[in-house]
């Protein structure tokens, strides 16, 4: 369970998260929608431990443990995963090498045995096949020259291999074609588990047809201004944010 209580965070002297509270229960899929610049990506960075943000108040607990005290890699080993809105290109590091390093680093941090190379290969191949990621892409430098949609697919592949307990998907649907959207959504749905929760950031109701959320939150100016069920997304699609963003001011 992820609990965010009265979170205030700023970067470069600019306050972006303004008293945000949010609870995501085990097994829950929570969607966050909100206008551009409302702080959704910032929230995902603060949860996953990016440096440079100052948390001036509030706390973030994952299963009761204070995430704010841990660095990003420790949070990852604890089960936090962020699928980036803009996945980074890592020249000179093949996708395979990167995946293996990350998977084994997490296992090591948790005191688990590292995967042997054949074991690792088997998992990656199977995972790639499910998400329609061609095998030769795994031998290329991570994300370098990948299309926008390929990058997003690679994010979901990484998520499926790292088996997080709390996964944030930051606009994973943007850049995906209609078929890819379905494949990626299937990939996410396959990971649904009573012990795993998701925070799905999106602008479009369409994704939520495939990944059906338990709760929908509207974010504006750094806080949650409205919480509802999946029907809230439909309402937003129809009316836009105008009914809610005013409340935040």
């Amino acid at each position: 369970m992820l609990e965010i209580r009265n979170l205030h965070a700023e970067i470069d002297g600019k306050k972006i998260i303004n008293g945000l509270s949010l609870t995501v229960n085990d097994g829950e899929i929570a969607a966050i929608m909100g206008p551009n610049g409302s702080g959704k990506s910032t929230l995902s960075y603060v949860i996953s431990g990016r440096e440079g943000y100052t948390v001036t108040d509030g706390e973030i607990l994952l299963d009761g443990a204070n995430l704010l005290e841990m660095d990003a890699s420790v949070r990852a080993a604890k089960g936090v995963f962020l699928a980036f809105q803009y996945p980074l290109e890592i020249p000179g590091v093949t996708t395979m090498t990167f995946l293996k390093a990350c998977m084994n680093a997490q296992r090591k941090a948790r005191g688990e045995a590292e995967f042997s190379t054949p074991d690792f290969m088997k998992r990656v191949r199977a995972g790639a096949e499910k998400l329609g990621v061609p095998q030769d892409m795994l031998r290329r430098a991570l994300n370098v020259g990948f299309s926008g949609g390929e990058k997003k697919r690679m994010e979901v592949l990484q998520m499926s291999l790292l088996e997080p307990t709390f996964a944030i998907l930051d606009e994973t649907d943007s850049g995906l074609d209609i078929d890819a959207l379905r494949i990626v959504a299937d990939g996410v749905n396959a990971l649904r588990d009573p012990k795993r929760s998701f925070l799905v950031i999106t602008h479009y109701q369409r994704l939520l047809d495939y990944i059906v959320p338990d709760t929908v939150h509207v974010m504006s100016k750094g806080r949650i201004v409205k919480t509802g069920g999946k029907e809230l997304a439909l309402e937003l699609e129809a009316n836009g944010y105008r009914d809610f963003v005013g409340e935040a001011a």
Binding site: Y45, S48, G49, R50, E51, D71, A72, S73, R75, A76, A77, V80, F81, L82, F84, P87, L88, E89, I90, V93, F98, A101, C102, M103, A105, Q106, A109, Q158, L162
Partner: peptide, 19 residues
């Protein structure tokens, strides 16, 4: 890039070494 690798579980020094 460093944050990306760290967020995937690589400790900072390992992420630096990889890059």
């Amino acid at each position: 890039q460093l944050f990306y690798a760290q967020a995937r579980g690589l400790p900072k020094h390992d992420a630096e070494a990889m890059l």
